[in-house]
Design a protein around this nucleic acid. Structure first.
Lengths: 141, 141
DNA sequence: ATCGCTGTTGAAAAAACTTTTCATTAAAGG
DNA sequence: CCTTTAATGAAAAGTTTTTTCAACAGCGAT
């Protein structure tokens, strides 16, 4: 039983073909996938999968933090597998490839400064970086 | 002529009642507003305003960076006036009140570290903080 | 293995959200 | 004031997401 299956099971959820197919699609992908794209990829493994189930599965996986949304200034429609210990995504503006990174230490100084400056108590944050991946840098050079 | 009107004008756009109404709504609000909410607020000033125009206006204002989307882990449907020089928003989880802050300096160290670690070239970022505003902290205490 | 309970599923439909189309209106410069 | 043309509102189309519900399939007990 894989780690995510373990996680589902201990949350009292069943390991189904649909869920395996969605996780498979997200595991294969190296860029964020929209629900529609997840469906297309996942149907290769589980033909009768429906879009509704993709939505439900993505919501479930998000709640369990196995999957995360990718955010862009113009919307937030992509989903991404979370890498354990890495809370933030870095997405290539050319090809969409995404990697994750951690950097809590660096952010804490900023948060503390903002707390003092605003009087807010900061509980959570959302950080995402955009740039050009090594692969796409080569293509240009 | 206000600053945002100046900005619109120099982009070759007209200053219309609809645009004034949308800007008015966003100026009054201290929390991010959805397009629907913008419509409701703005209609107080410009009765015949339609939702379509709200969408068009928000897109225009976003392009000119006069307005920005608010992002949450579960979606990105709110719009927020941008404060000049402040690129990031801090949103109260209780009442939705938002303030903006800057912190480029703090983030640059992180970005540089990530660039070295991943090989990506980082061009842009999205950072948003969530917490409890001073007002809502009082309500509890 | 089989059974039964109940969480899950897929399809259809509904709801919500966003964009397109187009005739009409109204800014802004002359 | 006119004229030009960007902008508007309403309706319709398109897209995305959620709800409903009968049928299905995990999985624990037998």
């Amino acid at each position: 039983m894989t780690e995510w299956e373990q996680r589902l099971a201990s949350a009292g959820c069943r390991i189904t073909a649909s869920r395996r197919a969605v996780m498979h699609a997200l595991t294969q992908a190296d860029a964020p996938l929209s629900p529609q794209e997840v469906l297309e990829q996942a149907q290769a493994v589980h033909r009768q999968l429906g879009l509704v189930t993709v939505y439900r599965t993505l919501n479930l996986l998000s709640e369990l933090h196995l999957v995360r949304r990718a955010h862009r200034e113009d919307g937030c429609h992509g989903y991404l597998l979370t890498s354990p210990g890495h809370r933030h995504a870095l997405i290539c503006l050319v090809c969409g490839r995404a990697v994750e990174f951690s950097g809590e230490e660096d952010i804490n100084a900023l948060i503390e400064r903002v707390e003092v400056g605003t009087g807010y108590r900061v509980d959570d944050h959302l950080l995402q970086l955009f740039g050009i991946c090594p692969h796409c840098q080569e293509d240009k050079g």
